[in-house]
Design a binder for these strands. Sequence first.
DNA 1: TGGCCTTTTGTAATCGGTCTCAAAGTGGTA
DNA 2: TACCACTTTGAGACCGATTACAAAAGGCCA
Lengths: 345, 345
Amino acid sequence: MKKYKQRKDLKNKPKAPTLIDVARVAGVSPITVSRALNQPDMVSEKAREKVQKAVEKTGYLPNLVAGGLATRSSHLVALIVPTVANPIFAETVRAINETLAEYGYQALLGLSGYNRDQEQDLLEAILCRRPDGIILTGLDHTDISLRRLHASQIPIVETWDLGDDPVDALVGFSHYDVGKEMAAYLLGRGYQRFAAVTADDSRAAKRLEGFTDHLAEAGIKHVPTNVIQTPARFSRGRSAFGTLLDQGVKCDAVYCSSDTLAHGVITEALSRGLRVPEDVAVIGFGDLDFAEASLPSISSVKINGADIGRVAAQALVAKMTADDNDPPPQTLVDVGFSIMQRDSA
Amino acid sequence: MKKYKQRKDLKNKPKAPTLIDVARVAGVSPITVSRALNQPDMVSEKAREKVQKAVEKTGYLPNLVAGGLATRSSHLVALIVPTVANPIFAETVRAINETLAEYGYQALLGLSGYNRDQEQDLLEAILCRRPDGIILTGLDHTDISLRRLHASQIPIVETWDLGDDPVDALVGFSHYDVGKEMAAYLLGRGYQRFAAVTADDSRAAKRLEGFTDHLAEAGIKHVPTNVIQTPARFSRGRSAFGTLLDQGVKCDAVYCSSDTLAHGVITEALSRGLRVPEDVAVIGFGDLDFAEASLPSISSVKINGADIGRVAAQALVAKMTADDNDPPPQTLVDVGFSIMQRDSA
DNA sequence: TGGCCTTTTGTAATCGGTCTCAAAGTGGTA
DNA sequence: TACCACTTTGAGACCGATTACAAAAGGCCA
């Protein structure tokens, strides 16, 4: 029997057992071990058993770095989100992780902090790891990022937005439409003087634009707005509304770019003796867990973040596993949204 | 000049440029390219420039999979947390990501869902990627996980807990002590009849144990407790307290295993016409953003999640970059905690 | 110009797997 | 027994980088 070369213990460093170690213990060739583990049908019952025993005896765990190099597929998916501090993304991250795991992929997490340049740096670092797929948040990337993405030939899914010119697949909804519908909703409930508290990220900006555009069509041109820095926080919402009130802004409804901000706005209103919604109505976005159970409950826009994650991950898997014979469909999914009427507006 | 072998376009698949492509364009050998990029000092000015130009021309991005195989270091760090839905972990995840990025490491995210078996599966998948380091949440792992961790010889940092028998490094605080101090705090404020709303994860259980132990020492043996499923949510806290009240539980202070639950408990109390803290006091844990700004503001236990993340990541980097000459110190960091007195208790 | 040391460049082997293709083993049929 | 088809196994090249070591180039002095 041929002896497979034993790895020399470089620098005395004890290393994890390799396929060759397993092969030696099992008394077969390395390639047989590889096949026994990855394509059991190609190997005889007897060989499979020998390999199985050797694997257990050595405590062998395959080295996916080496395997990935050979197969040119890392089974790694890059996942870039602005933040996980916002529960709405947390849910998407969870769903993506879960769905990818089902198909044997692992997520490489990157946090862009709502910043295109940071996203670009992240993307560069991540492309060096040769992921099999990439999931991005939003459509707003630097030119360099776009060029790299296109050049990389890697399947990509953009999420949490909808637009004309996705890099590849797209799973999301129209923020502009959300804004318009929020305006229509508030107008429909009879409110007439509006203020806005919004975070300064690009998607929130699109919603605000839809909101003010729709109001403008209804003849309302002026919407006092306080833009706060991301990430949106309860305390920032509270102080932002306080500032507006201190500036003498009069309004009967406040548009907020997230429930977190809405919650803060409501708290500030209540602390000043304003009744919600009688004196001032408040509407948020995201339909976070607390929106329904707060006092008063918060009117909001429900987005199914888990859905986005699941659909995005599935679309990506479809692309990653597609071969030339059956190319995957061009994916563009509008997951929609729905306005949740509650007590606050 | 020697011609470096051109990679054949296997299956017509256009592939990313490799080091060899760059070498050919630059008119030098592959190893010179490698050195120009990684150890610029070892290469002449002229060669460096040629390589630089060739890199730009080809749009070359190094393949860290191949590099990792050769150097036996992936520059990948496995990060396993129960969930990112809980903002308290989100902050740690952010800090870890940020700190690791500074040192050129990338985080591989795994969500264990507060479940040891799920953590074990995740760990197996992740060890196959040969991370340079591992950051875990908590000390509670399956036997198989522990065996694998020890066998792997990979630097490990456990976080968010403190205990006698860490696998390697440990950065956290004592949950038992937190529970005791919460009890002491409430007793000190004159409360006498207690109830508890707690999530069913192992660290929350330790806090509750500390809480009830301390009360027992003070002669209070009975603490009606409602244990809710993870993840803790506002709505679950609200309904959990509602259930306790419906069962006729009388109490003047409610212990909650998180601010999220506390917030729900307070809301339920207010909705039933109970005044907080006059009729019932509530204390939470985590000092989340909204605790300070809520109405009433929520007494809580402040943990610096970002600190934990930063310190843990730094400790891990120290271990990963240590050589045999100067081994890193055995790390065991107690980041402590502090009780934040607010209006709710 | 020659000799020696230092800097720079290059060749070959290696990391731990998988792929290709050929060889060996198996079984059925003539 | 000989032949053929099919299953199972293995040898060797390869993935894209890095490491070890050797060769070439450059600098300095006699």
